[in-house]
Design a protein around this nucleic acid. Structure first.
Lengths: 250, 250
DNA sequence: CGTTTAGTTGAGGAAGGTCAATCAGCGTGG
DNA sequence: CCACGCTGATTGACCTTCCTCAACTAAACG
């Protein structure tokens, strides 16, 4: 049952795409050899640092961001346990964004070259890596659409729905509520709004009975209603590579 | 000198990342075996179509887009000759966006499986594919920042600078002007603005002597001034994988 | 030489930003 | 156990940017 290996977030994440062989799992576990505890607010790296390693996130949330000339901050990606941080910079020698922990967590660094080893040694892992990369692109694209084309209420709702769904895909939680360890300021920087307006929007959503938030727990009583309101279509989160594998691999 | 192969946009594009072997080139040329002429406005595919092929763009510009519930359109990516269209959907069985030709052009379809063949047969091509994918992610991310954090004048300026730079990297053109075969409506859908405001912004930029546009030709008389104004930093366009290769491959 | 298509210009309006004051929770130290 | 101060959230007043609608002009095109 290879239960033991599912302790590893990254193995669990990769398994989501395709059944891994024993050897694949061993290769993956290589990436998580040096777990490091990091406290909330720790900066894993900074824009312009030299980039020659990735990082797997084993516990806690993290986010990448850019500081603009005028001092405002745009958050680019939210990372959750099982995600690989820094994939974007594979073809670059410099970091293009900074990364910070949103809460206490555990990360494992590994050099870019390890990915080349993966490419060399396993077709399945290569394909999954590529799938993960393209999935990430899809997530960013959806966020772009969200920022460009929706109003504040929809932006916020859409983000909450995306997060809820992402969590459901990895951590099984049947409820209509989830933990969201992010301040309103962070939400603002994520959605391109001002903190003030996030607050207003959140109370508006609450007044309409669509979203409730207390402390760091968010509840969505009527998923369907919220999805409708936010123009949320989860197809972009539901990727599936099996057809690709089945039609070609043994 | 393998000059003959540089006729192929895609070979030229890949060569930008790393020197290809003869065999690599042959493999790549496989992808361009069925060139098809397409007229401006042709839709290559539509959201929700089943996705099992990519497409290389040999001539002309194309763009992917999404239509929102309220009828507005967001353009996601601009493709230029040498680009691969549809990478995003590698891990998906459905198209997540539609793609249209911005002008007359030539494309070549090839099935997703061909990429798996590449993975199987060439480390270099695998790595380059991955680099291209991560570069595309970087481009989208920068566009996200552009949409979320800059005002109309900066958005437009930033987009023009990015396009200018992208063209310079593939087509050598020494001048301070380039061809931009896009209507203002298209620019609006690209930048999340209204066509009206694009027009105003363009005249504002012209009044300030920063950008001139007549017909489909754009001139940037003072690159440095415009970059400053737009908060444009070209690091995100200058990727370089050589260090990665050199430190590990033969 | 009309007719379509793309761009320009003006006036009014809405969404969201900014600034500032206030409040609530909470950890810290006395 | 309480006072203090910190951070994060809320609320109000006012302002800016960009949108919308609409009329108009300029090319492009048969």
């Amino acid at each position: 049952m290879k239960v033991e290996h599912l302790d590893s977030c990254i193995v669990r994440h990769f398994s989501y795409y395709y059944d891994l062989t024993r050897k694949d799992e061993e290769l993956l576990l290589e990436l998580e050899r040096s777990p490091t505890k990091v406290k909330a607010g720790t900066r894993l790296w900074e824009e312009r640092d030299s980039a020659n390693e990735f990082c797997t996130l084993s516990r806690g949330w993290a986010y990448s961001y850019r500081i603009m000339e005028n001092g405002s901050r745009q958050i680019l990606e939210l990372y959750m346990p099982g995600d690989i941080i820094g994939l974007r910079e594979f073809a670059f020698s410099q970091r293009l964004a900074s990364v910070k922990m949103a809460e206490d967590g555990v990360v494992c660094y590994f050099p870019h070259q390890h990915v080349l080893d993966l490419f060399r040694q396993s077709m399945a892992l290569t394909t999954i890596m590529f799938a993960i990369s393209s999935r990430q692109q899809v997530l960013i694209t959806e966020r772009l659409v969200n920022l460009a084309r929706r109003n504040a209420k929809q932006k916020l709702a859409h983000f909450l729905l995306e997060t809820y769904q992402r969590l459901k895909q990895t951590q099984a939680n049947g409820h209509d509520s989830f933990r969201l360890p992010l301040s309103q300021e962070l939400l603002a920087d994520l959605l391109g709004l001002s903190p003030v307006h996030v607050s207003r929007t959140l109370t508006a959503l609450s007044d309409e009975g669509l979203v409730f938030r207390e402390r760091h727990v968010v509840t969505i009583p009527d998923l369907k209603a919220l999805k409708e309101m936010a123009d949320f279509d989860d197809r972009y989160l539901i990727d599936n590579m099996r057809p690709l594998f089945n039609s070609h691999n043994s």
